[in-house]
């Protein structure tokens, strides 16, 4: 009796996902391997020989790596600070970090257009202070995209790290120090290894998020393309669905490789896992 129930409970959702998500993706990937009826990798070879595409791929990776590293540098101290607070203050600080995460990415990217534009806040301030006499070109550059991505995904890093840091017993740090470890050493040998799972999950979320985000590069990148805006351009502006499918497959492949590698790393670092 139990078994038949089980299938009827799971089947509708599974069928729905199979028909509307899994089949479209599998067939899209399949379609990239056939051109004029015969099996070929030509679609991919053509892409990886194209300097324009390689440049887009490189920009995407640069922006994603930079925003991931910066999110660790900015996020770790903040997460540590939050985790040391009493529950009430911790709740408020967490809420303030989660709020931007739930706010529309269009709103968040748009706010940076106001700040980074030629007549934006930063340029006005720099000119007023006499540091520059012509507005700097910040908006529509990879730097603008990187700032937007960092703003978009930093909260994910912070809350992933708070999740692990708040479980670290502060007695452990005191114990390490009373046994003669310096504060830095106690941090490196006790806090850091225990925070590793949160760091890896946060890293996956920020890196994959930046790698695949559309709204931020579309608004802040101008003519600078990243892989997601390139996919959209091929699919909707150029109507080249074969190329769009190849890009889609490359994006899925990169995502799965990154997630797989990070999980492997996390298993290696976590002896219990």
């Amino acid at each position: 009796m139990k078994k038949t129930y089980l299938y009827w409970l799971l089947l509708p959702g599974l069928l729905f996902l199979a028909v509307f998500m899994i089949i479209p993706i599998v067939l899209t990937i399949g379609s990239t391997l056939f051109k004029e009826g015969s099996f070929t990798f030509a679609g991919y070879l053509q892409f990886f020989k194209d300097p324009y595409f390689l440049k887009i791929l490189l920009t995407t990776l640069e922006v994603s790596v930079a925003s991931t590293l910066l999110s660790v540098l900015l996020g770790f101290p903040v997460a540590y600070y939050i985790s040391q607070k009493a529950p009430r203050r911790k709740g408020v600080l967490l809420a303030l970090a989660i709020f931007p995460l739930l706010t529309s990415p269009v709103v968040r990217s748009f706010s940076w257009m106001v700040i980074l534009g030629r007549k934006g806040l930063i340029n006005n301030a720099l000119i007023w202070l006499g540091i520059v006499d012509k507005p700097l070109e910040i908006l529509y550059t990879p730097v603008a995209m990187m700032i937007g991505m960092l703003h978009l995904f930093l909260p994910m890093m912070i809350i992933s790290l708070v999740g692990v840091l708040e479980n670290i017993d502060s007695d452990l740090i005191t114990a390490a120090q009373s046994l003669g470890a310096s504060r830095v050493k106690a941090f490196r040998k006790v806090v850091f290894p225990l925070a590793m799972p949160g760091l890896i999950i946060g890293g996956i979320l920020v890196f994959v998020g930046s790698l695949t985000a559309y709204t931020t590069p579309a608004l802040l990148g101008g003519k600078q393309r990243v892989i997601s805006t390139f996919l959209y351009q091929n699919a909707m502006t150029l109507n080249d669905w074969f190329s769009a499918s190849v890009i889609a497959t490359i994006m899925i492949a990169i995502t799965f490789v990154v997630v797989g590698l990070m999980n492997k790393l996390s298993n290696k670092l976590n002896p219990k896992g």
Binding site: P24, I25, Y214, L231
Partner: peptide
């Protein structure tokens, strides 16, 4: 799955 890939497929 990247959102933009879901949308396109």
């Amino acid at each position: 799955i990247p959102g933009i890939v879901l949308g396109f497929t």
